[in-house]
Design a protein around this nucleic acid. Structure first.
Length: 204
DNA sequence: TCTAAGATGGGT
DNA sequence: CCCATCTTAGAA
């Protein structure tokens, strides 16, 4: 009997995908891609269905808004690294660092549609109702914690690969969640979801 | 040193 | 609506 594990023929996104300059476009492009982790020898994955873009220059909602701190220095690395941080002392949020070295942009992954490793994800989530709908829940399901911040996403522990084709007509945009403190930048339409997908964390 | 606040989620 | 929970950044 053959066990189906992942999409072994899929193409892993490479450095050139992540090093592009337009973080908003990358946030759109990540919809339909598959986020994968191989933690403790177990493959878990899901299709990205909700993202948010954060720009390091002139975006008050971005942790690295023209300032380097111990936490945010990883965002200044070359695109294709992970920025994982602890939110509210409880939740580990996973971001994809984008743009070239020195330009601190990132895309927050807010929800995925589970594909591989359902059993492991349910165990890690303690069989909660919402398995991977929300930035803090999907990291727990995939076994991603802040100890992985700085990880190279072109490696073999956590990576993103091609999966579904998502057209512009399949995408809705809205304002980012939880960034009311960012004044006028809170109004930027930099949150993106795949229309009608039932795994998005909150309707636009 | 000290402290307020936070890119959330789960329960009541 | 309430609260758990703790790191981080900025102030003193």
């Amino acid at each position: 009997m053959k066990l189906k594990i992942g999409n072994s023929s899929a193409t892993k996104l490479d450095r050139s995908f992540y090093e592009r300059q337009d973080v908003v476009q990358i946030a759109r492009d990540l919809l339909g891609k598959r986020l994968c982790s191989m933690i403790d020898g177990v493959l878990t994955s899901g299709v990205i269905v909700e993202t948010e873009a954060y720009c390091g220059r002139g975006d008050k909602a971005c942790h690295a808004n023209n300032k380097v701190t111990p936490r945010t220095q990883v965002m200044y690395e070359a695109g294709g690294h992970a920025y994982v941080y602890l939110c509210y002392g409880i939740h580990h949020l996973f971001n994809v660092v984008t743009n070239v070295e020195g330009k601190a942009d990132a895309v927050l992954v807010r929800a995925i549609e589970p594909v591989d490793g359902l059993e492991t994800m349910n165990l890690r989530r303690n069989f909660a109702k919402k398995l991977t709908s929300g930035p803090g829940t999907l990291t727990k399901a995939l076994g991603i914690s802040k100890s992985l911040t700085g990880l190279d996403l072109t490696g073999h522990l956590v990576w993103i690969e091609e999966d579904r084709t998502v057209g512009e007509e399949d995408i809705s945009e809205g304002t980012r969640i939880g960034v009311d403190y960012a004044e006028e930048d809170a109004l930027r339409p930099w949150r993106f979801v795949i229309n009608g997908n039932k795994y998005i964390s909150k309707k636009i």
